[in-house]
Structures are given as structure tokens and as C-alpha cells.
Write a protein that binds this DNA or RNA. Structure first.
Lengths: 247, 247
DNA sequence: CACGATTATATGTCTAGACATATAAGTCAA
DNA sequence: TTGACTTATATGTCTAGACATATAATCGTG
């Protein structure tokens, strides 16, 4: 209850808005363990009194904490510090070109194969569609500073993205093209490990039998399949980093 | 996964609160592409008129959309549909016991090795600490239906979690113990692929040279290191799935 | 004691205002 | 044309109320 001393500290940073201060105060207490899981947070009217503000203001702070799953709010009972069930991490998977250039390395792209065809049974299974429309199948390679970085094997559903028929995948990687032409998709990623087969090893310039990290991404847009892609990364050099948020 | 939480009534869905309806309306327009990236969303006072409500109500809807990075709000200019920079996926990494039992399989746990020691230089480097306190080093194995599921190699910093000294890791996996005794940590995960060495292959009952998915997790709690753990999964059978959220 | 009905209360949502503030856009001078 | 100044405006935050609603606690009854 030693809260009343937060007023106008001379060295303190720019005063943020009040609701943000309330939110940060509570968040800090939770994260430091001062308020452990199950602990009941002061009622809204108590926080109103402590911070001398209206209920809407503390409500905004608490609502955001609830949205972030840090607290649980129960009618009539109060708000409680949550115990997280499973730790979840946010994994950022950039466009490969962006990822490489962000590292300050030169990006290289080679189209290995690109063909347009009517979807085979295998294509339909991979895209999760039942009708046999046209698709584009692409194999290509990404490199950083002229060292192979990843090989890509992709299928694009032309019935969802007809514009892709006219795209020039000889010079622009399909991932970048799709990112700029098909916004706001949803995706599911599956990450696994394999050893490089002959073809993959050759494309990545690694030994057959080397470990590879595989990312399968299946992308859709309001219930319509956009693309399915499989990326092979050399597992000894490439790492996926996911950070933050846990319990 | 269910699409919506609509009540039994097929005709008129149980009216959700107004701000949620506004948020869903806008979200739908964005996700279906009716409002593409860069599109300016109606001003708050226009939405007030359209939904016949106060500004605070539309503000709440728009604020949540902004928090979800679906729109960008600019003073004086308005609110705009964002173009996502990189697709980020939420990767849920459960406690292994919970993950296995959730699959309806029987969970098994074998402690391979557990020793308490003063942190060696290697331990300190791995934990990212400079002082040489006590640590616990644990090697153990998780199995599902008596088939090896993952091997774990963990270091716990006893200066952060002194209670761990009295925990019985012979019967309780350290991950579960920590989950229940050290709430609200933060973590960083690194995912990579390797081929199984002799020791790992034996523990997982796979062939030497088989692919393995490796997860390194480094966990801390308000600037204090809690634990560092490395998990090896047989790469051919185990998959990490990350879903949702993209562009 | 068990169990259903009642009540008290904390949260959930909403209103009709208010002032603050960043900034796009327009204005004017050099 | 350019740069500095002004203005209009959309968002950001906040208030002091209101009623709705779920539910923990209490009370009453069998």
C-alpha cells in the first residue's frame, strides 16, 4: 500500500497518461511477484480513490490487463492475477528478403522452377481444396551474401489469387510478391526437423544427411486458400527465435 | 475450432455488446479485403452516427483494433487499415506433461541425472549470470505411451529459485514444478535442427543421425535468470505448430 | 444440514459532455 | 519555391454519472 509516493518525481520520465500509469503499476506488481497468481487486485472503486480518478479510467487500465491475459476479471468477485496455463511465444517470421537485408547482408534469389498447371490430386490435398483449379508451383532459393539461405517449394492457388498469373517470379520472390498483393491473410505454421535429402542438400550446398529446419506455412484469406509453402533452412546455421510472454 | 460463439438462435444472433459489434464489423471488412491496407476507416463521429452511439463506444472498438495492430490511428488524419510488416505467429509451448495428457496419451517421466553444484563457468555463461551461485543441473526424459517424446537438459539458478533445492525432481518434471512455483516469467525460445548424437539417440531411442528439433528456452523473472533448458524432440514425429495472425 | 430464493456488489457497458494535443492543410511572407 | 506561422480537426484522455448483469453471500425453509 505504499503507492501514494509516485507524484511528480523530478528525475522520472515524461508523465504518461494516468490509465497507462495505473496499468504499469499493476503490471509491475504482478511481474515482480509482489502480487502472485490468485491475488485479488484492489476493486475499481479502491483504485479510483487511490489514483483520484473516475471509474472509466481504472476500468480502461484493467481491461487492457485482462486482454493481455495478465489478470482475470470476475463479476461480483473482483479481478485476480492469472496463472498462465502454457507459455506462448510470439514467433516473428519475416519475409525472407526483408529478414536478410535487415541483417545487413546482400539478398540473392534464384528461381529454380515455375510452372502453371491444373491442380493435381496432390496439389489439392496440399492446398486443402476440393475443386481442381489452376495453380502455380514454384521452386526457388534464397541466399545471403551468396550463401544459400533457404530453399522454397510453393504452391499458389490461382483461383484465390488470379493476379499471380501475371507476376514475374523470375525476379521477385513469391513470398514478397504475395506479401504486397495479398494483405491480411491468416496462416498456420508447422515447424519440424529433417535431414537433407539429395535435392535439398544440393540446393543448400550442404552435405546429404545434414539437419534442416523445415517450416510449412499454409495461408488463407477469409476461408479461401492462398498458398502453401515449405521452406528448408540449413539447421546448423539458421535459428528461429521466439520471444516474450510467458508463465 | 469453432468459427463463432453464436448462441443457439440461428436467425438473429444473440446481440453482443455494441462496441464488439462495431469492432467485428470493421475487422470483417479488413479481413475480407473490402477495406484494403491504407484505406481510411470512417471517422469516429461518422461511426457515432452510423451506430447511433457515443464517441466513447466507437473509440473503444477502434482502440482494440489498434491494439491488435489491425489499424493505425493518426491524430487529425484518421484511422487506417495497416499493412502488416511481417507475419508473426503465436507459438504455444505447453508444459510437456500437459501437452501429452491433452493428447489423451499416458505421460511418463524418467529422471536421468540431477545434481546440485556451484555454477561452473559454462553454467554461468549458459544462464547469463556473472556471479557463481548454486545451480541444479537436470537431465530427464519425457515419454508418451512409453515412447520417448523428448529429452531435457536443464539448469536452474538456485539464487533466483531457492525453493527448487527442496523439490523432488525424481517424480515431478522440473518444467511442471517451475510452472507452478515460479509464475509470470518471461522467456526466449530458439528453435533449431540438429542430427542426433550418440547420447541423444540412445535417450530418444532413435538412430544416430536422425533429425532432431531443438528448443532452447531461456527464462527470467524481472531481470533475474530462472532457468535455461534445451529440449530435443525426434524431428520426424514431433511438430511445432504456430498459428494465426498474419499479413 | 441441504438447497432454493433473495440480496448485495463488482464488473460490463454506455452516455454526453470536456479539454488536451498532434498534425494536415491552408496562409502568407521572403 | 520555400519556409514559417496559423488554423481546423481527429484522435487521446478523462469525468461523473447511469443501468445491466452475473454471481458470491446471505437468508429462509424444508
Amino acid at each position: 500500500m505504499s503507492l501514494a509516493s509516485d507524484q511528480a518525481r523530478p528525475g522520472a520520465a515524461e508523465k504518461p497518461t494516468l490509465y497507462k500509469r495505473i496499468r504499469l503499476d499493476i503490471e509491475t506488481r504482478i511481474l515482480t511477484g509482489e502480487w502472485p497468481p490468485g491475488h485479488r487486485i484492489p476493486f475499481e472503486h479502491q483504485l479510483m480513490a487511490r489514483y483520484r480518478c473516475s471509474r472509466m479510467t481504472v476500468n480502461k487500465a484493467l481491461s487492457e490487463l485482462a486482454q493481455a491475459d495478465l489478470i482475470e476479471r470476475r463479476r461480483r468477485a473482483g479481478s485476480f492475477v492469472r496463472r498462465p496455463q502454457h507459455l506462448s511465444a510470439v514467433l516473428k517470421i519475416s519475409d525472407i528478403r526483408a529478414e536478410i537485408t535487415a541483417l545487413g547482408r546482400s539478398y540473392g534469389y534464384q528461381l529454380i522452377d515455375c510452372r502453371r498447371r491444373t491442380a493435381t490430386a496432390a496439389d489439392r490435398a496440399r492446398l486443402g481444396v476440393s475443386t481442381a483449379g489452376k495453380v502455380i508451383a514454384i521452386a526457388c532459393r534464397h541466399s545471403a551474401d551468396n550463401v544459400p539461405f533457404a530453399v522454397e517449394d510453393r504452391l499458389i492457388d490461382l483461383s484465390t489469387v488470379p493476379e499471380a498469373a501475371t507476376a514475374d517470379f523470375a525476379h521477385e520472390p513469391p513470398g514478397s510478391w504475395l506479401l504486397h498483393h495479398v494483405p491480411w491473410t491468416e496462416a498456420e505454421h508447422t515447424i519440424s526437423a529433417v535431414v537433407a535429402d539429395d535435392r535439398t542438400a544440393k540446393a543448400l550446398d550442404i552435405a546429404v544427411g545434414s539437419p534442416c529446419l523445415v517450416i510449412d506455412r499454409y495461408t488463407w484469406r477469409s476461408a479461401r486458400t492462398v498458398t502453401a509453402v515449405r521452406l528448408h533452412y540449413p539447421g546448423e546455421t539458421h535459428r528461429l527465435v521466439a520471444r516474450f510472454k510467458g508463465g
